[in-house]
């Protein structure tokens, strides 16, 4: 595997392999000194054209625990506003000698374009509404661990609730969850569903209350406040009333059901209950697993077979 751009190109075997590798990284992270020399001498560049402190920090931590050298570039403005093209930025940094770019960009497809201008590996850390493959991997890993589903997700029912249309997390997770055998239901008003949703391998519902007591995983998406400006929903109040996880709805969750969120949460909107009071809340587990999954991805792309058992 040279790049990780799109979770949809991974086979179920690929997903299982990466999750098995993540098991090793979880073990590394539990050591007194959570660091291995696996990527010593490798240089990883985190190139974030869109602000995301949590994802940047997660990738940064992952690379350092594998002993890679890390450069972080946070480019808040778009390449056009900055006056340097994406190509020139990539070619310039690439010329310094780089083994991997971790790219976050507001534009769908930007990480794919990056691969044309560098020989380094490229990891998509989220592009536009398109893909967020490491998020999908960490979510799969979290479900696998907490529902004890090492062999696959057959028979699991996962509801993804909220703004599917504008969500790279939803696009990646639908592909990964269904590839592993889960049944996915998208729950949203029609204005927040993607066009041609009938071509997605999912069922669609506009009624969270009829589903809440049946699902194994309730996956909530962040409700962006600017969606109100576009008249996609009348108000946050109405959204929360119909699609938010309220205490009443939380009480109807099955005892084993997981509640997940990619963060950052809008408390009182999609998460209208304190997640720390939910026994099935995975929110912080997701963050923890995110580091291990990103270690696995970087090791898979850059590792030269160095022994993970060796301490740094």
């Amino acid at each position: 595997m040279k790049h990780l751009l799109d979770i949809g190109v991974l086979t179920p075997d690929d997903l299982h392999h990466l999750m098995a590798l993540t098991d090793h990284m979880v073990e590394v992270n539990q050591r007194p000194i959570p660091k291995v020399p696996a990527l010593r001498g490798k240089t990883v560049v985190n190139l974030f054209f869109e602000n995301s402190t949590r994802t940047l920090t997660s990738f940064d931590t992952a690379a350092r625990r594998l002993s890679a050298d890390v450069m972080n570039f946070a480019v808040s403005s778009s390449s056009v506003n900055k006056g340097e093209s994406l190509r020139d930025t990539i070619e310039t940094i690439s010329a310094m000698g780089v083994d991997a770019f971790v790219v976050r960009h507001k534009s769908s497809g930007a990480p794919m374009q990056v691969t044309k201008w560098t020989n380094a590996s490229v990891v998509n850390a989220g592009d536009g509404w398109h893909q967020h493959p490491t998020q999908a991997l960490l979510d799969c890993y979290t479900i696998r661990t907490h529902l004890n589903r090492r062999t696959g997700f057959d028979g699991l029912h996962i509801a993804i609730v909220g703004d599917i249309k504008h969500s790279r997390v939803a696009r990646s997770n639908v592909q990964a969850f269904t590839a592993l055998g889960a049944h996915v239901t998208l729950v949203a008003p029609p204005t927040l569903l993607p066009p041609a949703v009938e071509t997605w391998p999912v069922t669609v519902s506009h009624d969270l209350d009829s589903l809440i007591a049946k699902v194994d995983v309730l996956y909530l998406l962040r409700m962006q406040r600017e969606r109100m400006v576009d008249a996609l929903v009348p108000s946050l109040r109405e959204y929360t009333g119909a699609y938010g996880l309220t205490p009443l709805r939380a009480a109807r969750l099955r005892p084993h059901a997981l509640v997940m969120h990619p963060g950052p949460m809008n408390r009182g909107v999609e998460m209208a209950v304190d997640p720390s009071e939910l026994p099935g809340s995975m929110v912080l587990h997701q963050v923890t697993n995110g580091v291990a999954v990103r270690m696995a991805v970087l090791f898979e792309l850059l590792g030269s077979g160095a022994d993970l058992a060796t301490s740094a």
């Binding site: 769908s108 497809g109 592009d127 536009g128 509404w129 398109h130 893909q131 790279r168 696009r171 993607p194 066009p195 041609a196 949703v197 071509t199 997605w200 576009d230």
Partner: peptide
Amino acid sequence: TKGAVMHEGSCCSHLGLPGWP
């Protein structure tokens, strides 16, 4: 067609690009 990049349909849906219906 606000922000539209490509035809609104199944391709744009999967690519996460704003659609031009």
